[in-house]
C-alpha cells in the first residue's frame, strides 16, 4: 500500500522541481494564504490522476498484486499525506518569504482541498480517460467561481441561516465543518471503491 503512495513521487520526480516555483509564484502574487495551501495540496494528487487516467496504468496496477480496494485507498490516503507534506513545505516557503499566515488559513486550505477531492475523485472513474482533465478543470472553476457567489447570495438573502451561523460559536462551526468534510471524504472513498471495483480494463 505504501508502495502505491510512494510511486507518485517517482512518477512526478521532474514535476516536483516545479513545485517550489509554483508556490512561490502564488506567494509573490500575494494570494490569500488559504488559497496557496489549497493549490499546493492539489499539486501531487491531481497530477497523479493525470497519469492514472491512462488505461495502461490501470492494467498495470491491477495486474500487480494489489486489490482494487487498495488502489483506491492509496489514492485517498495518499491525498492526505501529500496534503500534509505540501502544507509543511508551503508554510516553510511562507516563513522564508516573510508572509504571515494563521492556523485558520491552513485549516481552510486543507478543508477545501479535501472537499474538492471528495467531489472530484469519483468523477475520475466515471468519465472516460481523456475527458478527465477537462472535468477537473471545470470542477475547479465551478468551485472557485460559482461557489463564492452562491455563498454570498445565501449570506445576503437567507439571513435566517446566516444569522444562525453567525450566532453559533466559532469552535462549533469549525468542528461542524470538519465533521462534514470528514463524512464527505469517507463517503466519496466508499463510492469510488464501489465504482472502481466494477470497472473493466
Amino acid at each position: 500500500m505504501f508502495n502505491l503512495i510512494r510511486r507518485d513521487v517517482i512518477l512526478q520526480k521532474r514535476l516536483l522541481l516545479t513545485f517550489i516555483p509554483f508556490i512561490a509564484f502564488f506567494i509573490i502574487m500575494d494570494s490569500h494564504p488559504a488559497l496557496i495551501f489549497l493549490v499546493a495540496s492539489i499539486f501531487i494528487p491531481f497530477n497523479a490522476y493525470g497519469y492514472d487516467e491512462k488505461a495502461e496504468t490501470n492494467i498495470l496496477l491491477n495486474s500487480l498484486p494489489y486489490t482494487r480496494r487498495e488502489i483506491i485507498a492509496s489514492r485517498y490516503l495518499g491525498a492526505i499525506i501529500y496534503m500534509i507534506l505540501a502544507i509543511g513545505v508551503t508554510s516553510l516557503a511562507l516563513f522564508a518569504l516573510d508572509k504571515s499566515f494563521t492556523m485558520t488559513d491552513i485549516a481552510i486550505g486543507g478543508g477545501l482541498f479535501l472537499l474538492f477531492s471528495a467531489f472530484t475523485f469519483p468523477l475520475f472513474h466515471i468519465f472516460k480517460p481523456g475527458n478527465i482533465t477537462t472535468v477537473v478543470l471545470i470542477g475547479f472553476i465551478l468551485l472557485a467561481g460559482v461557489v463564492p457567489p452562491i455563498v454570498m447570495f445565501f449570506a445576503e438573502h437567507l439571513t435566517a441561516i446566516t444569522d444562525f451561523i453567525v450566532n453559533v460559536p466559532t469552535t462549533y462551526l469549525y468542528w461542524g465543518a470538519a465533521a462534514i468534510i470528514l463524512v464527505a471524504y469517507t463517503v466519496s472513498w466508499g463510492v469510488t471503491t464501489t465504482i472502481y471495483q466494477r470497472k473493466a480494463f
Binding site: R7, I10, E56, S63, P65
Partner: peptide, 29 residues
C-alpha cells in the same frame, strides 16, 4: 487476489509501463 497475482508474471501486447519513465524507475515502482 493478492496471493494469485503474486505468483503470476504478465506480458501484454502493448507497453503498460509509464512510458516517460526509465527502466530503473519502473523497477522501483
Amino acid at each position: 487476489e493478492k496471493e494469485i497475482k503474486e505468483r503470476i508474471g504478465f506480458v501484454y501486447d502493448g507497453n503498460v509501463f509509464f512510458e516517460g519513465l526509465n527502466l530503473k524507475d519502473i523497477k522501483r515502482i
